[in-house]
Simulated assay, not measured.
Amino acid sequence: MNKDLNIVQRSVALRSTSVTRRATRLGDPLFEAVTRASGILVLLLLGSLIVSLFIGGLPAFRRFGAGFLFSARWDPVHEVFGAGVSVYGTLLTSLLALVLATPLAFGIAFFLTELAPSWLRRPVGTAVELLAAVPSIIYGMWGFFVIVPIMSQYIEPPLINLFDGIPVLQDIFAGPPFGTGIFTAALILAVMVIPFIAATMRDVFETVPPVYKESAYGVGCTTWEVMRSIVLPYTRVSVVGGIMLGLGRALGETMAVTFVIGNANRISPSLFSSGNTIASLVALEFPESPTGSLKLASLLALGFILFVISFIVLAISRTLLRPRLKA
């Protein structure tokens, strides 16, 4: 009886193993096909987006040629359009935001990983992450109703008076203190990208093996020396990646910038002057652009240019990182 029972159990086990192997043989090719299709789908979506923008903006490129990229004129009445002002505003606000946000984000990440007591790390870290979930239009409203009055009353007038008469600086900090403008837009963008950069830096700082830091502390290094000589070299690739992530967010931001940048189509050396960006100009002008019009084609051409700018920024970052990656 026991012998027959053992034979039955072995038979069931062999059948189960055979079914499992058969399922594995079927599952692996299926999983490979699904993952390959997902990767191809991403390329198709990206390619279709590029092609759609280029085809849509082709009438503007044909009409204005290469001058479209540098022209500062945007005249819907006479159907003369140029991307110069919006490209200038996009690059300037994004770079200023990065200059303002990166030191603050680094300080937050440094505090959370090295200095903050354990009971404070989770609340502060959660608060930083929650900032990334705030809708951009809320940032825009906060900037318009809170930051703009502060800038116009307490920040811009003293700076204008301080640098008055100093060559170059008087041009950079000049103009009536309206509160709106390039600098205010960059300030709002900096607040918006800080959570992305800080969260990335904090996560990569925590990946440093503790033995490295403990060894540095053991030979007498201070906390800052450990951060500068151990943590940053170990995580430099990911840190730069987080900064570029923030730059990508700043380049394409729309509503928050639209609220506070002033939306004037002119280029001025002053950071306090009004301007626009590609995203803000498209957001304002797109609803009033008839289908098939040259204005709509120009807006689509602006979208294509913004995509190219983002691609160039990514390519530059990869080029800068390539020697370090090889090292």
Rank of each mutant, 00 (worst) to 15 (best):
P323T: 14
G165I: 05
A72M: 06
N263M: 01
L169V: 11
A190P: 04
V231C: 02
L44V: 11
S48I: 11
A297L: 08
W142G: 05
L58R: 13
A97E: 00
S298K: 01
A105I: 02
L299H: 10
I55A: 09
A105G: 10
L45N: 15
N265Q: 07
F61I: 04
L49F: 07
F205R: 01
L271Y: 00
N6Q: 11
L69K: 13
S268F: 07
F183V: 09
P290L: 09
I312Q: 10
L5G: 14
F106G: 12
L169K: 11
P157C: 08
A250M: 07
P177E: 05
L104G: 06
I261F: 02
G56F: 02
V204H: 03
V99N: 08
V80Y: 09
I305W: 03
L5Q: 04
S136V: 05
V308N: 13
G175V: 04
S273F: 03
I50Q: 09
G248F: 07
L169G: 14
R202F: 08
N265K: 15
L281H: 08
P323K: 08
V308R: 05
T35M: 11
F178I: 12
S86K: 05
M192S: 02
S94V: 00
L112Y: 13
T319F: 07
T235G: 06
A250G: 07
L245D: 14
L299D: 06
A109Y: 02
L100Q: 01
Y212R: 14
Y88D: 14
I172V: 05
A101S: 06
S52M: 10
I138A: 12
L104Q: 06
